[in-house]
Design a protein around this nucleic acid. Sequence first.
DNA 1: CGGCAAATTGATAGCTATCAAGGTTAGTGG
DNA 2: CCACTAACCTTGATAGCTATCAATTTGCCG
Lengths: 215, 215
Amino acid sequence: MPDAGAGLVNRLVTQRVHLLRGEHLYRSNEAVRHRLYAIQSGQFKTYHLSSDGEQRITGFQFVGDFLGLDAIGLTYYRNSTMALSDVVVCEFSHARLVDAAQHCEALALHLRELLSKQLSLAQTTTLLLANRADQKLSAFLLALPSKRADDEPDRQVLEINMSRADIGAYLGLADTTVSRTLSRFQRQGYLALRHHQLAITDAAGLRAIASRNAP
Amino acid sequence: MPDAGAGLVNRLVTQRVHLLRGEHLYRSNEAVRHRLYAIQSGQFKTYHLSSDGEQRITGFQFVGDFLGLDAIGLTYYRNSTMALSDVVVCEFSHARLVDAAQHCEALALHLRELLSKQLSLAQTTTLLLANRADQKLSAFLLALPSKRADDEPDRQVLEINMSRADIGAYLGLADTTVSRTLSRFQRQGYLALRHHQLAITDAAGLRAIASRNAP
DNA sequence: CGGCAAATTGATAGCTATCAAGGTTAGTGG
DNA sequence: CCACTAACCTTGATAGCTATCAATTTGCCG
């Protein structure tokens, strides 16, 4: 959030919600509670249930991302949002936020830009439609929020709390293909993976894979 | 647009823009003109240019869809928008729209809902990430806006102004695969295709293809 | 420690990208 | 109005990739 009304925004936070790994913030077909949520720590996944019971992952959300923006005009939630790790979110009342925005043009502008940015981002996600598995996966890994290692500039560390099956459902790949490709990336020295910790050791190499059409 | 201020909205239209097939409404990296556009007739495609010059289709837009919503907070456009047929769009000034929304809560609500709906839709597009070509293509065809034939209830007629290559770039398929799959759908009696006119003759069959995971 | 879910890895069949060759459509210029 | 050209579409053959099935291994939680 911008400086323009940090105190104001803090007064709009109705509560801080703690969830454990596996718990839902809301589920599909529940009545919309007209709340917005900002992720303070942890990771989420949002998904639809298809008619045959399969989960279709629509996205992963990280620290700083907002949840609930896509439910603003709705009566029932259209997707389910599950914590992939223990998480903390700030809860806002949408009505009070709108009310405040009426009297603070800076806040209103920020809200519009936030929605527009989310929209732009959701559309860009289409970049994941590359046709080869290594392209999808390298683009996916590079898009994840990561922390640069202090000592090595090209080494980026990040947390992968989602399962291989989740990644596959998101990218349109079988979980075995995700596992295979990650293993191959390790053998080829692009990354190191241990438990839920992933370190990208050759970001330039991954970018090359993600962007090349023909080898 | 809702009844709440139809006259008001009409006064916000700065002009009607006519474009020919192949012309651009705006291009990537152009300065944002702070306009919103509502499609009155025709079809558009929006795309990114990847580093190697390939077009990545981010979406197709049809009558009633809005353009420019994803550029609200930006200085430069992040995608290019091209007319796939002769088109007519209504141009709005974003600033004047925001100004009017300040004094008309119904309009403000409608705008928020519009953005939220677009966001929800952009996320749902992830459904196109199915792993088989016939699933992608059947889901794609069913999502296109169509007119029901008056005489036959199960027959839906729609216009396909985009090329096979465009569809392929959107779904993550080669253009030959799109062509092949469409041909097969015709042989199997799911649809009839002639020039840019497409008729879905067995929507239920296509839905079955789109939703089944294993045959 | 035991049971279970997740991850890895191998073998195989099926699908799709690629390369290549006509055929068709649409748009251009005479 | 017609011929021509370029882009688009279709279709075939082949190689490469991925889904699937299956068997282990690893890690997690009670």
